[in-house]
Nucleic acid binder design. Structure first.
Lengths: 249, 249
DNA sequence: TCGATACTACGGCCCTGACCGTAGCGTCCT
DNA sequence: AGGACGCTACGGTCAGGGCCGTAGTATCGA
């Protein structure tokens, strides 16, 4: 039986505490945050957060970079984000009874970052436009760009460069937890997202993983990506800070 | 922030108990097991198992079918298996310190079922042969078969039938936790596995997710799938029942 | 050099939840 | 009908672990 169970439980147990889950969720946009920020986000005292972070480190889920008197924590790698996404798919689907889709922040389901790439309707719009345009080809473990796809990326300022014939696919589908359809992950997707932030086509919100698509960004994507569409986000009601809504009872 | 954290933690917490993790792991081959079998596999008394199963049901991770005085539990859906796979990737990778790959049962890493399709080197062999042969094309969220791919599946006795233009891809990559490379999932992969069991090309082990590739099965796959290769499993040392090896300290 | 800040280490409180005992209900076999 | 079996419900016990208090170490700014 290879004794997988216990290890599986070890990892899941680490993610199964509300405070730690909040921290991991906050880190899913790929940024690195300080212990204090994470403590605040998780809703616990810094001492408590420190203990949680130590456990997550020991479990190999986080990596840390000490910089002066700050310690910046980030997810240890894309596999961690992938695993979390898998759980979030369940968390959003489980028993139609609870968690109605409407509860998901409108901005968040419109566009957000997923570790290092775009998710939400923006991510899906990009995926679909490339797919229906025939710019994606099957490749080891995911997609590769066809020549027309490479041209599109080049036009957007992302050099598809071979990146050394790596094992992992440059692009791969990643199931979107809010839309329940795939968007694009992989290092080319990350490079595209990076380029979008760099050029001001998209902007990060301050205290959320939500992303804003600027007018210029929309124009650029529509020009470069025939068939791209991505309906505007509904006007937000309230930023809805933290203090999670009361559990289901 | 959309209060994802708490829900995420809820699901992860369910998976984070050793007994429950063992149950879920045992169900990952897609079969349905009775409460008593699961109790035995998890190493707890039936009363305890019953409680765990109720929790997993309420969490939406399991589905149950009552048949006479037995209750057959199974995973609620492929998403659950996917989420578990995501965690197992972490569990096998985490800190090179613990869990050396050698600990994974040789038979298990050679061939096993992953929910409803093949994983391990067998699954990867199929994936790679189709991929390098150019039998896969990119498709919404995964792969589709090219015409040559359809011919191969037809030759193996699997009718690729459109299955009604569903949203989900017929084939999609699924990261293999033992080999750390993708194998094929999706309903066509499931149909292929089903066909292989049906024809006696593969056989299930009794108390393990490991799968045996018969001589006939190997011959069939090599004949139908140009480029297919799948090295034999190392002779197993001992079946290594359960009683998980002592934790890392 | 001194204080402020960021973080971690330790200790004690307390609650969640895993466990199994007994008991009860429904189903199958003879 | 009677007994065996599969499963679940309930109650008591107990350990694991989350929480924050205080205290200690390292870094930055003046």
């Amino acid at each position: 039986m290879s004794a997988q169970g216990p290890y599986l439980a070890e990892i899941a147990h680490l993610m199964g505490d509300p405070a730690r889950a909040n921290m991991l969720h906050a880190l899913m946009d790929g940024r690195a945050l300080t212990a204090k920020e994470l403590a605040w986000l998780a809703g616990v005292a810094p001492q408590t957060a420190s203990g949680h972070l130590a456990k997550l480190m020991q479990g190999g889920l986080l990596a840390v970079a000490a910089q002066g008197r700050h310690r910046y924590y980030r997810l240890a790698g894309p596999e961690v984000a992938t695993a979390l996404e898998g759980l979030m798919v369940l968390a959003n689907m489980e028993g139609t009874t609870r968690r109605l889709p409407s509860r998901v922040g409108a901005e968040l389901s419109f566009a957000r970052t997923c570790y290092d790439h775009f998710a939400g309707r923006l991510g899906i719009g990009i995926h679909d436009a490339l797919m229906t345009g025939g710019h994606l080809a099957a490749s080891e473990g995911g997609y590769a760009l066809t020549s027309s796809g490479k041209a599109i990326f080049a036009r957007l300022g992302v050099e598809p460069g071979q990146s050394g014939k790596t094992r992992r696919a440059a692009l791969r589908p990643c199931l979107d937890w809010s839309e329940r359809r795939p968007h694009l992950a992989g290092h080319l997707a990350a490079a595209l997202a990076c380029r979008c932030f760099e050029m001001g086509w998209t902007r990060r919100r301050k205290d959320s993983r939500a992303v804003t698509l600027t007018e210029e960004g929309r124009a650029m994507l529509e020009a470069a990506l025939p068939g791209f569409r991505c309906d505007a986000p509904e006007p937000s009601v309230s930023p809805l800070r933290r203090e999670p809504v009361p559990a289901l009872a």
